[in-house]
């Protein structure tokens, strides 16, 4: 076989045709490129659209952004803002857990993987615990557990509905069994919330997996999600390795999870505030 006719994998053209001098630079901060449809839009427009692309892709945004979207006049009070993780196990992997915490706090400007606040949606008071995925993958350590516990106490005392916005890879390995026990701790607190007949809405975002799915995220009086969010117990990679074949299209996405009966409804971000107001009204009246 000659070089010319072994053919199909030979490049006909060079891989990159654009001269370096002609390369278009996208200035950081001005444009948003959608990872789903690759469309590039001005960041301003993208944010006006609540960080949702025209193709329907919901960009992952942090807790603060949800508060802007949900609360009237962006007014809210943060609870237990200064709580930070300790290192009860003296955990060291490739680096020290304490160093990792400091670095993450610096980079993200956050204290830990959850922010708990109280504010108003429409006329309704609501306590919201929203997870920060950018803080060690939104992992659940003792701070996440304790802040949820205290937010629930606040909800019970004030008879204010409670919502958790989950976005997490699961447990925080550097807190090992302490982290595991937060699954029990948060679930225990939810039994008290339930006994007090205070509504609990669980909003699951992209991604919600592991110990978070296997505890509070699946325990809502209503479980809701944004479109296209990855929601599952085991991660897709682990499942693929276990069963030794590819996973079907749309596996573990919100629509799939709803179809199998584990979500009450899926809500687009642009409708989130109104839908929550409606939901809260129905619990209240």
């Amino acid at each position: 076989m000659t070089e010319e006719n072994n053919g199909w994998f030979n490049r006909v053209e060079q891989g990159i045709n654009t001269e370096t001098k002609d390369k278009k630079e996208i200035k950081e901060g001005l444009w948003y490129k959608c990872p789903a449809c690759k469309e590039i839009v001005p960041k301003e427009d993208h944010e006006a659209n609540l960080n949702v692309c025209v193709c329907g892709y919901h960009e992952r945004v942090n807790a603060k952004r949800y508060f802007e979207i949900l609360f009237d006049d962006n007014k809210y009070i943060e609870l237990n803002a200064d709580m930070t993780s300790a290192d009860p196990l003296g955990f060291v992997d490739t680096k020290k857990y304490t160093d990792r915490l400091v670095a993450t706090q610096k980079k993200s400007g956050l204290k830990d993987a959850i922010t708990t606040v109280v504010g108003k949606i429409g006329t309704y008071d609501i306590v919201i615990a929203a997870m920060n995925f950018e803080f060690i993958g939104g992992s659940m350590g003792a701070v996440v557990g304790e802040k949820i516990a205290r937010a629930i106490d606040y909800s019970i005392e004030n008879k204010a509905p409670f919502m958790i916005i989950s976005k997490s890879g699961g447990a925080r390995m550097m807190e090992a069994a302490f982290s595991l026990m937060q699954m029990a701790k948060t679930s225990a607190k939810l039994t008290q919330l339930s006994d007090a007949k205070v509504p609990y809405i669980s909003l699951l975002l992209d991604p919600t997996t592991g110990g978070v799915t296997a505890s509070f995220a699946m325990l809502g009086d209503v479980n809701i999600a944004e479109p296209g969010a990855l929601i599952g117990f085991a991660g897709p990679r682990v499942i693929r390795e276990t069963i030794g074949r590819d996973l079907p299209e749309g596996f573990q996405r919100s629509e799939f999870v709803k179809e199998h009966g584990f979500l009450d409804y899926i809500v687009e971000r642009k409708n989130l505030k109104n839908t929550l107001a409606q939901q809260l009204r129905m619990f209240a009246n």
Binding site: A184, A214, M218, L219, G232, I239, I243, F262
Partner: peptide, 19 residues
Amino acid sequence: PGLEAEERGQGEAIARNIY
């Protein structure tokens, strides 16, 4: 960590038991 386990709500099943 299997496909059917996810379809039938492994996360929910564990969460429910703990609760």
